[in-house]
Computed example of a mutant assay.
Amino acid sequence: MTNIRVKHTLIDERSILELLQGYNLGPISRCSFLTRGLNDTYLIITPRKQYIFRVYRYGWRNKEAIQFEIDALQHLKNKTFTISHPIAKRDGTYLNEIDAPEGLRYGMLFSYSQGERPAINARNAQLIGESLGKLHHKTDDFHSEYNRGFKIDLNHLLDEPTAMILPVINKFFGKKVEGDVQEIVENLKTGLRNKELEIGFCHGDFHNHNMHVENGKIEVFDFDGAAMGFRAYDVAVSWWNLLTNYGEKEEECWEAFLKGYSSQRTLAKDDFASLPLLITARRFWLLGTMLQNEDVWGTNWINKQSLELFILQIKTDMIREM
């Protein structure tokens, strides 16, 4: 019999229930697998409350990186910022060690964000902008003794993804197009280096898919991409989401988002000017992340059509930036 190697296992709900015995949750009515992404998410239902249990992907975030995330979430909770926050076990710790076939993984229980994903309209866009402004304001004094393992900087957004992307571009389109893409990357890096950008704690993936709204209040979750870095990147991700997924509402909602953000925090001139560049950087980061994690997204989508769209988007971005 051939010995198999495992990239990623889906842990049975019965094993999750065993891990939950370490918490003061009382009777558990249901544990169900909710969604697979860069991490695996389970919905936990008790007679009184709902929770989220996350199992971190092996090799994606190490223990120290997750401890950084816990510190950030605790900081925001203490500052009364509405988030899905980690729930401690009876022994006061947060992490569960899971001896999975592929290696050591970590699990953590979170509070459940009530409500639903915000529909994109001017009112909600303003609320989302206000929420991001508050998040940045309340983390101005945040620090952690733990090393996150990355920063939201040029290396994370451009250098690392480009190392994954260029060989694929070369494979489908040849050296000429690869060179064109590399030139765009160098122009982005030059443009961003020439700006004095605010550095601080960032959510890293701030858009309406990572929050719920209930009774006019936004609650934010999924800080898996959070780190120290370019604050303007958080703003740019929200704009990227409007441009990419809600084009017909982009102008009105972008104006509303900026109104909300500026009601809580001033966006400096260089930070504002960097936003179009960071939208393009977001495209590189996302494509690189998808290529890096083929056990999440597979490889069927890696084809000439999807890559032509990426090239068109980054070239169109550069025209808008000029």
Rank of each mutant, 00 (worst) to 15 (best):
A256N: 07
N194H: 12
R14L: 12
M108A: 04
K138L: 09
L10C: 08
S111C: 07
R54S: 01
K269N: 11
N96L: 06
T2K: 10
E248Y: 15
I165G: 01
K175N: 15
D295T: 00
V55L: 02
F81H: 08
L312T: 14
E130M: 08
K189P: 00
P101D: 07
E321N: 14
H136W: 05
V185R: 11
L267A: 06
Q74T: 11
Y58C: 01
L197F: 02
F150N: 12
V168N: 07
H136N: 04
V55G: 02
G229E: 09
R90S: 11
D180Y: 07
S84N: 10
M322W: 08
Q292N: 15
L157I: 05
A72Y: 12
P27F: 14
R148N: 03
T41D: 07
L109Y: 09
A273K: 13
Q126E: 11
I218W: 14
N3V: 14
D140H: 13
H137T: 13
R57F: 04
C253L: 06
E97R: 09
I279M: 07
A268Y: 06
F206K: 04
R123H: 14
K63C: 08
E145M: 10
G22I: 05
G204Q: 05
Q313H: 14
E178G: 12
E102T: 01
E97V: 02
W240L: 12
L192A: 07
E97P: 06
K175G: 03
H212D: 00
E214K: 15
E321V: 14
L157Y: 01
Q50N: 15
P161Y: 14
P161A: 04
I4Y: 11
F310G: 07
R231Y: 09
R117M: 14
E214G: 10
F310D: 01
G149S: 09
H207M: 04
D140I: 05
L158I: 14
L287S: 04
L10Y: 13
D295Y: 00
E198W: 11
S15M: 13
P276Q: 00
T80W: 15
K89R: 14
V296W: 01
K7D: 01
G59P: 05
F81C: 03
C253V: 02
V185I: 10
E252D: 11
N62D: 10
H136Q: 08
T82W: 07
T190E: 09
R61D: 06
G133L: 00
R320V: 10
L291R: 01
F272M: 12
G133N: 06
A88V: 08
V177L: 10
G229W: 11
L19Q: 11
V235Y: 15
Y23H: 01
F173N: 04
K7G: 00
K249G: 02
